[in-house]
């Protein structure tokens, strides 16, 4: 019995892994396939001005990105510039181009992490406002990215306003608890802070885009050639920050060589090996690496020095 069970296991394991890898490859490529099916006609919609309706929608989307209404998962989904770009793209009628610009802005925030309530910049504000300006003004991605970086820094003001004023509602919850009112605690946790959040997110973004959007776009389009080039150049270098921020967590120990493998596979193939394929190869190498390490794995994860997760903005 035992032997049979063992034999069965040994046969089925490679099959299982093969099936898993195939599933992963197919799953990863579903978006590519879907895109091929949906791209029938491309209309180059190029709105030059942001109207109040569009500005309000972007403002509300930015509020939603910080709100709890999407199963509390906003912070991991629509708070990221990639998703922000997609949604703003829908508002402006071109989700593909929106996702593209969102993707570019997201490169800077790839290593974005919030630990202990501190954030270094606000990816959502950079994503929503940056994509809206880029789509409305027809900016290229380097310019959009450089424009979005300072906007993201402004976002820390929003974050601080939220974190500071929310402390007031904790005391309201205390008072409700003293009276034994569960309803009071719920109001203090949901209603009041959400009203405040709406006031400091949706309202200023709507006003800024509606009144200032056209002005900023005109300003950028009036820049001399070399300033636009400067923005494009920094758009090429800024992704290094996002990547480096993320590297602090994983660029260590025996995993370091894989960074160089990934880098030079892409460079020497000049992009002929796409990122998705590199991810699948990386997954295969990960299984191999962990298997070969065996029980020594725990000694690898103990870092000599824990990464500094909080930026203390």
């Amino acid at each position: 019995m035992i032997n049979r069970a063992l034999a069965k296991r040994e046969i089925s394991n490679p099959v299982r892994i093969a099936l898993l890898v195939m599933t992963v490859i197919i799953a990863i490529n579903i978006p590519n396939i879907a895109h091929g099916l949906t791209v029938v006609q491309e209309t180059e919609a190029q709105p030059t001005q942001i109207n109040l309706f569009q500005a309000a929608l972007v403002g509300i989307l930015y509020y939603l990105a910080s709100s709890p209404w999407l199963f509390g998962s906003s912070f991991y989904t629509i708070y990221r510039p990639l998703a922000a770009g997609l949604l703003v793209g829908f508002v402006f009628g071109d989700p593909g181009q929106g996702a593209l610009i969102g993707a570019a802005i997201n490169l800077v925030y790839l290593g974005f992490i919030s630990a202990g309530g501190q954030i270094p910049g606000d990816p959502a504000l950079a994503g929503y406002v940056g994509t809206a300006l880029a789509l409305a003004g027809g900016l290229d991605y380097g310019t959009a990215l450089t424009l979005a970086a300072p906007i993201g820094l402004l976002g820390t003001i929003v974050w601080n306003a939220r974190m500071t004023v929310d402390s007031v509602f904790v005391h309201m919850a205390d008072k409700a608890a003293d009276e034994g009112s569960t309803r009071g605690v719920i109001l203090a946790n949901v209603l009041y802070p959400q009203i405040w959040l709406f006031l400091i997110t949706a309202v200023p973004v709507t006003i800024a885009l509606w009144l200032g959007g056209g002005f900023i776009i005109d300003l950028i389009n009036g820049f001399p050639v070399w300033v636009l080039h400067a923005m494009a150049i920094s758009g090429g270098i800024l992704p290094a920050i996002g990547i480096a921020l993320n590297m602090r967590f994983i660029f260590r120990g025996s995993a370091i060589p894989y960074f160089f493998i990934g880098y030079f596979v892409f460079v020497t193939s000049a992009g002929a090996v796409p990122l998705t394929v590199i991810a699948v190869i990386g997954g295969a190498l990960a299984v191999l690496h962990v298997t070969l390490l065996g029980d020594r794995v725990s000694s690898v994860t103990k870092p000599e020095k824990a990464p500094k997760t909080s930026e203390g903005a």
Binding site: G236, I250, A255, G262, F266, A279, G282, A286, V300, T301
Partner: peptide, 24 residues
């Protein structure tokens, strides 16, 4: 531990490729 190490390997590959493709 295994998940963290495995994901680090995969993450490094992807970050490497990402650097090559987007840092100019």
């Amino acid at each position: 531990d295994k998940v963290v190490v495995g994901a680090s390997v995969l993450g490094n590959m992807v970050l490497g490729a990402l650097s090559a493709s987007f840092v100019v």
